[in-house]
Write a protein that binds this DNA or RNA. Structure first.
Length: 416
RNA sequence: CGGGGUGUGGUGCAAUGGUAGCAUGAGUCUUUUGGGAAGAUUUGAUCCGAGUUCGAAUCUCGGCACCCCGACCA
């Protein structure tokens, strides 16, 4: 893609009133646009990143059998009244409600009610179980205090995933599979997630599990051990415990960001909504459920929050909008510039033919300094420079965003 | 929802109650070109509503918005 054709521009100055790194860098680089506190539009390159993240999540969900759907966002009031969540709890405190001349509806903050209602019309026997369903869509939640860029929004993109089982044992097996799938998702996104025991709020009395990433801007505090055998959220942590019950080392305390929260739902939704199946003995029983969320747009924010330097974003290869950023640096001499541009064009065409994503900074009026600064800000993992210097040395210059090493190589030697 | 802070061109900043200025961006022209180039020229702003005053960006009241701390949080 040619940079001159992307309608967004970078900003030199930090936006006034933003303290959070992800909010500053994503806006300056033109990935997102703030509409209101906690409400952002995703611009072309922002959407590319979001799609990369979504695809990683989608692949891992499909790998454990998840079937993708896209449910309605408008929520029928009657459905939420069946679980007694319209007038209290999440329905009262979290759900946006909209009235027209005929009816009142909610904007989906989560989809247990809707999905349970859908599946009950399809599931009749134990032979129809188990299965799991996910979707990636915009959720709406009234946040008392939206903050920190993409980390806590009123409108945000979430992957919500639900599983349905005939027995608790089967649910537990799947729950473990989902945990492993989530670890893979975060690893592929370049993040080290710590599985942490937490409270399920009014959802469940049992511990639930959160996937936490250590970060100073996090809202949570966790006590954990590097051995990986122990981590608990402060809200459930017994302060008398000081050593890891698994390896015996001192526990560490850190602020962290919650990327995901997974729950055992039991029959909390299937019973009131009437989602029953007939078991092997011909007895009717409520379906056992689990639910598993990942904040997709929050994940994008967390990646920026944990991967940046004073010049800008450093995207991991797996989620970067492009694999490389091609910068022709002109010399001011007509003949040479023609040669430089020809070379840059041929590199661009070559990479495109190979299917390598490339952002081509073809802006003729930008100075070298500005192109470098923009490249650092946007944060594409590999920078390729074509200039008089590189022509003289018969190659192209490459530099990885997360390193200071610069080297001249032949185009054929490029690996991304 | 409680507390604190802030609202001025697209962006970042200034302006004792008295001509809204600077930088940057954007447009045009010339010269430049390896880390946010130079000159010339053009463009563009006081969050909204009341009040005080001869006169309000500035003072008062009300509203709205944004940021931060806390409470809350599937």
């Amino acid at each position: 893609m040619k940079q001159s054709q992307i309608f967004t521009k970078t900003q030199k100055e930090n936006p006034k009133d933003e303290k959070s790194i992800n909010a500053i860098l994503l806006q300056r680089a033109g990935f997102i646009y703030k509409e209101m506190a906690g409400v952002y539009s995703f611009l072309p390159m922002g959407l590319m990143v979001l799609n990369k993240i979504s695809n990683i999540v989608r692949e891992e969900m499909q790998a454990i059998g998840g079937q993708e759907v896209d449910m309605a966002i408008l929520q029928p009031k009657a459905l939420w009244q069946k679980t007694d969540r319209w007038d209290k709890g999440i329905g009262l405190e979290v759900m946006y409600k909209v009235k027209d001349e005929q009816m009142e509806v909610g904007l989906g903050p989560t989809h247990e009610e809707m999905l349970t209602d859908i599946i009950k019309n399809h599931i009749e026997s134990f032979e129809d179980l188990p299965f799991s369903v996910f979707q990636i869509q915009t959720k709406f939640r009234k946040e008392a205090r939206a903050k920190s860029g993409l980390l806590r929004g009123r409108e945000f993109i979430m992957k919500d995933f639900y599983s349905f089982h005939a027995s608790t044992d089967d649910f537990k097996d799947f729950y473990e599979k989902a945990k492993q799938a989530y670890l893979k998702v975060f690893e592929r996104c370049g993040l080290k997630a710590i599985i942490t025991e937490a409270s399920g709020g009014d959802f469940t009395k049992d511990f639930t599990h959160e996937f936490q990433v250590i970060s100073e801007v996090g809202e949570d505090t966790i006590y954990y051990c590097d051995c990986g055998g122990f981590s608990q959220n402060e809200e459930v942590f017994d302060k008398k415990v000081t050593k890891c019950p698994v390896c015996g080392n001192e526990l560490k305390k850190a602020k962290s960001i919650e990327l995901s929260h997974i729950f055992s739902l039991g029959t909390k939704y299937s019973e009131p909504l009437g989602a029953f199946f007939t078991d092997k003995n011909g007895v009717k029983a409520p379906i056992i459920m689990g639910c598993y969320g990942i904040g997709i747009s929050r994940l994008m924010g967390v990646i920026v929050e944990t991967s940046n330097d004073s010049h800008g974003i450093i995207w991991p290869k797996t989620v970067a909008p492009f694999a490389c950023h091609l910068l022709p640096i002109l010399s001011g001499k007509e003949e040479q510039d023609k040669e430089i541009l020809e070379k840059a064009n041929s590199v661009y065409n070559d990479l495109q033919k190979k299917g390598i994503g490339v952002l081509y900074d073809d802006r003729s009026k930008k100075s070298a300094g500005e192109k470098f600064a923009d490249a650092d800000l946007i944060g594409i993992p590999m920078r390729i420079v074509v200039s008089q210097k590189t022509l003289e040395q018969g190659g192209i210059e490459i530099k990885e965003r997360n390193s200071d090493n610069v080297k001249i190589i032949k185009l054929e030697e490029l690996h991304v």
